[in-house]
């Protein structure tokens, strides 16, 4: 019996044997991170909703949905490619897993570039964190904070995809590690499903 088992009074099934809920430690850590990050994004979106509801001259600067529709399509598609990558890894198809993982990373980069292009266009129209030509200055702060937080997550995800992909190819990481990263990537996609209607579509000029 190990020292840990002795300390826990011999209850090795919980602490030294099978993990809680039969979920691996890495996966459990990622789920806990996702729950915490859900609270972070929810707090941002609720604060944004509060401000929008309480501010009479809230700006509606978006004229076209083309860019945001394309970004949504790219991000949702990247979730599918991530799924294909994990499936290939589980099947032992290393080149396939690597190919789909890098396609996912490429889609993430495309999303980030479109996002930056949109930011630059808005900045070009005179929108900053505290000023804009359409109404309350709070809009810029809320918009850049929420979309910036999401873009940070996408950027971190792309870096993680490349690093994990390379290490998976080298044999240092396994299919399980790719699956844990997949959870994060799907979460980033899921957050976008709430950001689009709240931040973009409700601020559309008809």
């Amino acid at each position: 019996m190990s020292q840990a088992d002795l300390t826990m009074g011999g209850h090795s099934t919980t602490f030294a044997g099978q993990p809680p809920f039969s979920v691996s430690t890495k996966k459990m850590a990622m789920w806990l991170f996702i729950i915490a990050d859900t609270a972070t994004f929810a707090a941002c979106l609720v604060a944004y909703g509060f401000l929008r509801n309480a501010t009479p001259n809230w700006p509606k600067p978006f004229h076209s949905i083309t860019n945001v529709a394309l970004m949504t399509f790219i991000l949702v598609t990247s979730s599918l490619t991530m799924l294909l990558g994990i499936r290939a890894a589980r099947a032992g198809n290393k080149p396939g897993a690597l190919r789909w993982t890098f396609i996912t990373a490429a889609l993430g980069i495309a999303f980030a570039l479109l996002h930056i292009r949109e930011w630059l266009a808005l900045i070009g129209e005179g929108m900053t964190m505290f000023h804009n030509p359409w109404g309350t200055g709070l809009f810029g702060a809320a918009f850049f904070s929420i979309t910036g937080l999401h873009l940070t997550h996408v950027t971190a995800g792309v870096i993680a995809l490349i690093v994990v992909g390379i290490r998976y190819q080298g044999g240092r990481y396994k299919a399980d590690d790719l699956e844990v990263l997949g959870l994060y990537w799907h979460f980033v996609d899921m957050v976008w499903m709430f950001v689009v209607p709240m931040v973009y579509l409700l601020n559309l000029t008809h």
């Binding site: 949504t72 399509f73 949702v76 599918l80 799924l83 294909l84 499936r87 209607p197 579509l201």
Partner: peptide
């Protein structure tokens, strides 16, 4: 993967519905 593809198409369709609602 079959169900994954179906879910992907469903999510895309739902995203399109959001744009229609807008």
């Amino acid at each position: 993967i079959g169900s994954g593809l179906v879910v992907y198409l469903c999510i895309l369709a739902l995203a399109a519905i959001q744009f229609v609602i807008a």
